[in-house]
Nucleic acid binder design. Sequence first.
DNA 1: CGTTCAACCTGGGCGC
DNA 2: TGCGCCCAGGTTGAAC
Length: 282
Amino acid sequence: MPELPEVETMCRGIACFRGEIIETALFPRHTRRASPIQPRPKILSSKLQGARITGITRLGKRAILSVTPANENNELFLIFEPRMTGLLLRVPPPTEKHVRLIARIKKYKHPLIFWDRRGLGTITMVDKSTFMSRFGNNALGPDALTASGPELYDKIHHSKRHIKVALLDQKILAGIGNIYASEILYAANIDPRTRCYRLSKDACARIASASSKILHHAIKHEGSSIGDETYRTADNRLGRYQRFHKVYGRDKNKCRRCKNDIQRIIQTQRSTFFCPSCQTRY
DNA sequence: CGTTCAACCTGGGCGC
DNA sequence: TGCGCCCAGGTTGAAC
């Protein structure tokens, strides 16, 4: 679910907790352990108890809380990876059933909650050096909100992959997922099946600029909420950017620009939406 | 080497 | 109604 705009909105929604102290951290049910570096709930609880939240930032599609444990000076990083259905909430969750973390915050009536229906999301904690090696510039491309055309061109001009598939690769640009990849390519007038090496510097500049524009616009409208058990803001409201989608989920509808049919195709097992007449293939 | 694919999960929607 | 199947915003590591 959450891509860059949704995770950015979550981070802004819980920004009030910056500087505050975590009283207790409970893990009421299993949270998937996707990596051996992921500390067990017991360890997480003890590190978080009494810790101060010193920063709340987004890195690609992850939300990062910088925390300083009660009896330590070193800063640790608590990393939330929502994947498909994870939410960070500061109000009561949609159901109690899928609550994965309850962090009581001093001075606040409601705790910080990580809620995840499908349970594919992860919560991990690392020190600074592990953070840099796992999530630094080698592991992640430049942020899709601010990346430039030349940066994108450098990353992809040698590649045979379809541009849509490359945009989903977090090492190329960080933050783009399946919804915004389709929307960005529509805005840049580029067919998602175009091979990367065929894209000119100018075309890469159009993609970078469309990426920045669309993601900023989506943040302004607090992300995209589609379907029922869907993305919510930290105070449990729906996002509104789905109203602005030009192609995603609009197959069998008409292109708003040219009135031809929007098409849905499958690329590496995932849906891509585009307008064959507005988006040119190079 | 670059690229693709199955697996990780739950639950809603659909056809029979 | 109910069952089985398909599908969904992401990431990873194994397989090709």
